[in-house]
Design a protein around this nucleic acid. Structure first.
Lengths: 332, 332
DNA sequence: CTGAAAGCGCTAACAC
DNA sequence: GTGTTAGCGCTTTCAG
């Protein structure tokens, strides 16, 4: 068997309590005994058992992260922000993919509760009544890149509605009147928020809403490429596209080009998220910046505060957004 | 306090042992008492404490994953493969970023050991003597997308040297004699393996090695773009580029285009990994396929076998690779 | 098929 | 400053 705190205590001629104090950096240990204990720990190659510690202390220094899909650039970048801050505060993270599936999400939340995580980060999905019930029950939870419609749960996100509004208004200001909205399912909270921004922008310019310009596509390149067929078949040709994310926007650009049109001359295109991809295509993509890394980092930081019961004034943090103008739009 | 197994036992009029049996699906429980216990569990909203269970059983159903950077497309996709299989076998994963930093890696390994993970997946870095000592000590470990030079540790990867050889040979067969090798640091095991393949291909065609064609760049778009300046400044212009990954390859394509040349007419370019990006740029990128998801999935599956002491014939799994030909090269 | 009891390795009062 | 002693909530023999 591996060496335990008891072995160290015996070998060093002290009690378990003292060894525990040394490990946990308690102040009340005589320097000489501390040194002795440390030496024995070294000699024996003692490694504290975090599970036992967790059971005794009711703290696991582990936090749970539930996100739709780690293989998505967006969430991967966010996860990096989370992990960096977690490491900084000596937390480990347990990562789970939900595929935006409510049943899975609920199952994962329970699973993480069983593992006794000290806190939970819940990313990028809608929050139903059932979620809220589960999430509000015990440990601190922070919503990331999503919002609690009721504002009960702490969250960190950008103002997606406003961001969409800004983007579409920019297009309208440049004279466009037929602007395609390439969106994920409108039932998601994100989809809805963007849609509201889109409508608000149109309203501000007295442009009537044309339902045929709202095109729902799965938020992936291939799927979006297909979805663009509908757009290009439209009788009254649109002249601008506002996409739900960069991958979809890139697909839009390519579909447009494949149909013999030019970007930005015939179509102006604006993406969303400003992932690395935006700079890696030509024409480079104009995109609404969502500070992914920061969203993760700020959320994790907020979570540590909640866990340590520090009082936080605002449990809802709205990070600033902006539009990064590149070559898929003309001028500013 | 939350409800424990003891509460359930008392309420159901049975012993803790029986409740434990029910939870763990032990066969030896009378259907009627099983039903009764299940009902009480439901009523009380009992949720087993995995930490206590872990301490008692010495199994945490958690595995540790150490990778360089989750925000990289390559590792994110790999992580997804890992996670899916882990979920299938009811394991959670603790994810940590190492940034390829040896000190961090060692620290993380120890950290995960303390957390009593049942197994460890170690991704994409070189394995030093120190790693090997730590890694061989206790729990099952599988190397993913990397290799143990000594072949002592189980691993899942492709034959990178052969893959590079294939790619460069293809270029040579098409008549190219001045082929740039855009590589990450040659001190990494991956860099070295690709370099060997590159050299072997040249040797097979009796083409002397020209050191000026070996260009080390950080494996990111922006950095690679800068690095390409060296290439384009070369007196005797090269005509083909073999890149360490897709992001670098895309940068190469753009650098070439920005300099007024065309791809694939003036330069043929081959990337590595075949990430999603390869299809999202124009010209679409020819790339060496590394089956990222499968690497993760197979490695995780292997790890479960190791953990359950099933005997495995081959602890070193080499997955097949191939080249996906697209528009950044001409014909086949 | 079920129960009693001994830990798993550590922390956290509480004494001294 | 340091030791003693209960647990933390569960699994796992061992009886019966």
């Amino acid at each position: 068997m591996s060496v335990t705190i008891y072995d160290v205590a015996r070998e060093a001629g002290v009690s378990m309590a003292t060894v525990s104090r040394v490990i946990n950096g308690s102040a009340n240990v005589k320097p000489s005994t501390r040194k002795k204990v440390l030496r024995v720990i070294e000699e024996l190659g003692y490694r504290p058992n975090a599970v036992a510690r967790g059971l005794a202390s009711k703290k696991t220094t582990t936090i749970g992260v539930i996100l739709p899909d780690i293989s998505s650039v967006f969430f991967a970048e966010l996860a990096r922000g989370i992990e960096d801050i977690a490491t900084m505060y000596h937390y480990n993270i347990i990562l789970s993919n939900s595929d935006q599936n409510v049943d899975k999400e609920l199952k994962l939340i329970n699973n993480l509760y069983e593992k006794q995580v000290d806190g939970l980060l819940f990313l990028g999905s809608q929050v139903t009544e059932e979620h809220r019930r589960l999430l509000k029950s015990s440990i601190p939870v922070v919503l990331v890149a999503t919002e609690d419609p009721l504002g009960e749960l702490p969250s960190v996100h950008i103002d997606v509605r406003q961001a969409a509004l800004d983007a579409v208004k920019h297009l309208l200001a440049r004279g466009h009147r037929r602007i395609v909205f390439l969106t994920e399912r409108l039932t998601t909270s994100l989809g809805r928020a963007r849609y509201e921004g889109y409508k608000a922008a149109l309203a501000a310019y007295d442009v009537p809403l044309d339902e045929t310009l709202i095109v729902e596509v799965p938020p992936y390149y291939e799927a979006a490429l297909k979805g663009m067929k509908t757009v290009l078949a439209l009788a009254d040709r649109p002249t601008a596209i506002f996409a739900a994310n960069d991958e979809v926007a890139v697909a839009a650009v390519h579909a447009v080009q494949d149909a013999g049109y030019r970007v930005p001359d015939d179509f102006e295109v604006i993406g969303f998220d400003n992932t690395r991809i935006a700079q890696m295509v030509r024409p480079m993509l104009t995109s609404v910046v969502q500070p992914m890394y920061d969203l993760g980092a700020v959320a994790m930081r907020l979570l540590t505060k909640l866990i340590h019961q520090e009082d936080v004034q605002t449990k809802t943090v709205v990070l600033p957004h902006r539009i990064e103008f590149r070559q898929s739009t003309r001028g500013e």
